[in-house]
Design a protein around this nucleic acid. Structure first.
Length: 352
DNA sequence: AAGTCGGGGAT
DNA sequence: ATCCCAGACTT
């Protein structure tokens, strides 16, 4: 497939550039498979700069697989708070417990065993195998598809799973057998620093001479990617319910779905319930009698596939305790120990 | 193949 | 506003 392409020269130019240009990142200090694993999970759909402080805190709190396996899920979610895609954290802990139980705490270096772990998909499997275990396995992420779609001028839709497999087959041919770790990280680093989505720095590119897209002046047109449809807006009334001891009602979200097992202030889907029936509905749903008070403001929160439009209301209750399993009455200091999504962290600013 | 699952930064 | 980020899982 790669006729008239000087693979070994390409490898050499890429590896030389990576050696001198790579960023100093906390998971690059050694080849600890656990650190590589944690970093790769955090880096899914997340930029390096965002991940670094989370990675430092996470490794500080859970230095080994045993520490993570022994932790409460809520502790793990609290460290993950604000990073998003929280199932990553839950799957990671699930998988680490599997490693402790089944593999005596040793992260497996076999592709099948690694890929069977929860949350370890094709990309992460290849990343761990190549970076931690020096195996020449492809690790195709968005960076790799962007770089190679330009270098090789691949004009197929990268959103199609079949096309991603095509890129994996190309990487299998291209990857350095001597240093698969630096090769995979080098392409990704190139995509992050030079071969960027918009206005790539082709003049600084170490593999410019191999790039078909640059030769034809179409680097800005690649990769081809079909557009995702826009999100739907869902309106809620979100309630800051306070009793006369300055305690607030918080609610644990479902163990499945969006923001699973995180905490929030109670939210009422207002289109379904109606403002007039809000207090009655809340009483019948949660067994808590409340009185709606002043509106405190609006908050719009954008997710990948939906948009929350939150109307924030203050409310009062005379109860000192709650019976519903989902609910807790807590003061502000205690509230800080629970994992909240960012939208509800912003709501806390309306307290007091 | 399409939908679900966060949040932030760059443009 | 739109895109996209070191993607995986479910249906």
């Amino acid at each position: 497939m790669l006729q008239q392409f000087n693979i070994s020269a390409f490898q050499q130019d890429l590896l030389r550039w990576y050696e001198t240009s790579k960023r100093n990142l906390p998971w690059r200090k050694d080849q600890d498979p656990y650190k590589i694993w944690v970093s790769e999970i955090m880096l899914q759909q997340t930029k390096v700069d965002t991940v670094v402080p989370y990675f430092e805190r996470f490794m500080n709190q859970f230095p080994t697989v045993y520490d993570l396996a022994d932790a409460n899920e809520q502790e793990v979610l609290k460290v993950w708070e604000g990073l998003g895609y929280y199932s990553r954290a839950r799957n990671l802990q699930n998988a680490v417990r599997e490693v402790v139980a089944t593999y005596n705490g040793e992260i497996p270096s076999s592709p099948d065993q690694l890929g069977a772990l929860k949350g370890v998909g094709p990309y992460t499997k290849g990343a761990i195998l190549s970076i931690a275990f020096n195996q020449p396995e492809p690790a195709v992420d968005g960076n790799v598809m962007r770089v190679l779609s330009r270098v090789l001028k691949i004009e197929e839709d990268i959103a199609i799973p079949r096309v991603k497999k095509l890129f994996e087959s190309y990487v299998k041919e291209l990857i350095s057998k001597e240093d698969p770790s630096s090769f995979n990280q080098g392409i990704m680093e190139l995509g992050a620093l030079v071969c960027t989505p918009k206005s790539p720095s082709c003049m600084l590119c170490p593999v410019q001479e191999y790039c078909k897209a640059f030769a034809e002046g179409i680097e800005e047109e690649l990769p081809i990617k079909s557009k995702s449809k826009k999100q739907k807006t869902v309106p809620y009334v979100a309630l800051l319910i306070c009793n006369n001891h300055n305690q607030y009602i918080i609610e644990k979200r479902s163990e499945k779905g969006l923001l699973a097992n995180l905490w929030q202030f109670p939210m009422v889907p207002i289109n379904e319930i109606g403002m007039d029936h809000l207090e009655n509905w809340f009483e019948s749903e949660y067994g808590v009698s409340i009185t709606l008070n002043r509106k405190q403001g609006n908050l719009k929160h954008v997710f990948s596939h939906i948009i929350w439009q939150l109307e924030i209301y203050e409310a009062r209750t005379n109860q000192q305790e709650v019976n519903d399993d989902r609910l807790k009455m807590v003061d502000q200091e205690t509230m800080d120990t629970f994992p909240f999504p960012v939208s509800h962290q912003k709501m806390m600013k309306y307290i007091g």
